[in-house]
Structure formats: structure tokens, C-alpha cells
């Protein structure tokens, strides 16, 4: 089963199957995005979306509230497709680029 995936409203949202699933103003806990062990990233806009296996990913522009670094991230997971349905990542999950342990 195929799924549609895109950024929407000029970076306001990650759209999965025409539903607004993640987007600007969210706070994400992140690793390997800034100098913090676990950063507190305010998402200011979604730059791009992608897939990695069953994971839906997004590159976002934002700022870490802990160290203040402004950055455009690599692809970070936002959710995954399980049994044909999209499931968002838990709110408090720590997100890191797929190649980071």
C-alpha cells in the first residue's frame, strides 16, 4: 500500500496521507542535532520529508531551547507506518538521525 507524504502550507506541516501529522511549533527532544546530549528543539518549519524503511522522517528548521543553536536538521523520525497505518512518534521520544546510535 502506498502512502502520500509531503510538506504542507510552506513548511507548516508534515502531511501523511493528506492528514497534518506533525509541524511547526512542536518541541522535539533530539540527539546529534546540536551540542546538547539531548536537545530541546523548537520546530519552526518543515523543510523536507522522507522515508527510511517504515519510518517517516523530516528535516526541520528550528532552534534548541537549551543551547540556542539555530539549525536545519538532518532527517529525523516523526512516525512510522505499522500495518498500513501511520503512527506518530510518542511526544517525549528522543529523535536522532537514522544513522546515529
Amino acid at each position: 500500500m502506498s502512502h502520500s507524504l509531503r510538506t504542507l502550507d510552506d513548511g507548516a506541516w508534515v502531511s501523511v496521507d493528506d492528514r497534518r501529522e506533525a509541524g511547526a511549533s512542536e518541541l522535539w527532544r533530539v540527539r546529534s542535532v546540536c551540542d546538547c546530549v539531548v536537545g530541546d528543539l523548537l520546530v519552526e518549519g518543515v523543510v523536507d520529508v522522507g522515508v527510511d524503511g517504515r519510518a517517516v522522517t523530516a528535516r526541520v528548521a528550528g532552534r534548541c531551547l537549551t543551547c540556542d543553536r539555530e539549525t536545519v536538521t538532518g532527517h529525523l523520525p516523526v512516525g512510522r507506518v505499522v500495518e498500513g497505518s501511520y503512527r506518530p512518534l510518542a511526544t517525549g521520544a528522543v529523535r536522532a538521525p537514522p544513522n546515529v546510535e
Binding site: 502550507d9 509541524g23 511547526a24 511549533s25 523548537l42
Partner: peptide, 9 residues
């Protein structure tokens, strides 16, 4: 944020 998708506050 009352109505806008992009706004943070």
C-alpha cells in the same frame, strides 16, 4: 495560533 498553522504563539 488562534487560527494560523505556522504561528508558534
Amino acid at each position: 495560533t488562534e487560527f494560523c498553522s505556522l504561528s508558534i504563539v
